[in-house]
């Protein structure tokens, strides 16, 4: 019995601490989320063995997220994030930058678990200095070219996910970014896992 009392007391203390932590974590403010994003999940699942890491890549992800409480439960969490290149192409002549701007609302499922949903925009920016590249063509070599202009692609995304509030400062976030949702061929999902720090 004493052990049960002790457990109950510890549980109560933990619960109180968690409540305080949750309150603090949801205050109006800014968060830094750092983690990883797995791109092209659907293609990865459908690809033949050995090609998974060529159709999809695991890349670093850094994001600034703000939180604006809208009443007692809803929190508006607009965020701006970018993929960090943990992985580069073999030649690296052409560069790309992928940025996400999201307008997400979150709602509590429990005291420490929040569900997020909202629209966003993915901005893909690729560029190169231009120039000729000599590559094998099977029978001899041919001259190809890297682009001498920048290209911007803007795609609407729908973001949904879960946020686990661990303390007043720290949270864990699992989110899925869907794009091309209305098009069976173009439909794409990226999965992000990040740890967030309240700044």
């Amino acid at each position: 019995m004493p052990s049960l009392k002790k457990a109950l007391l510890l549980g109560l203390m933990f619960s109180s601490l968690l409540q305080a932590a949750v309150k603090d974590n949801l205050k109006k403010g800014f968060h830094l989320d750092i983690g990883a994003i797995q791109t092209h999940l659907k293609k990865r699942l459908e690809s033949p063995p050995g090609y998974e890491n060529f159709v999809s890549s695991l890349t670093g992800y850094i994001r600034f997220r703000s939180s604006f409480p809208l009443g007692s439960k809803w929190v508006w969490e607009p965020s701006l994030g970018t993929l960090i290149p943990w992985k580069s192409g073999p030649d690296g002549q052409t560069k790309k930058v992928t940025t996400h701007l999201d307008l997400t609302l979150s709602y509590p499922l429990t005291q420490w678990l929040r569900v997020r949903l909202g629209p966003g925009v993915q901005w893909l920016f690729s560029f190169s200095d231009g120039g000729a590249v000599i590559l094998d063509n099977g029978t001899s070599t041919s001259t190809f070219y890297t682009p001498n202009y920048a290209s911007h692609s803007f795609t609407m995304t729908l973001q949904s996910g879960l946020g686990v509030l661990i303390s007043s400062k720290i949270s864990l976030n699992l989110e899925i970014y869907g794009s091309g949702l209305f098009d069976n061929l173009r439909r794409n999902f990226d999965l992000a896992l990040t740890a967030g720090w309240r700044l």
């Binding site: 992985k87 073999p90 690296g92 002549q93 052409t94 560069k95 590249v133 890297t146 202009y149």
Partner: peptide, 19 residues
């Protein structure tokens, strides 16, 4: 530098191709 870019190795068939 870390945040800026990922490199890839695709090319164009010609110079300044726009499709």
């Amino acid at each position: 530098g870390l945040l800026s870019s990922v490199g890839w190795s695709w090319t164009h068939v010609g110079n300044n191709i726009r499709g």
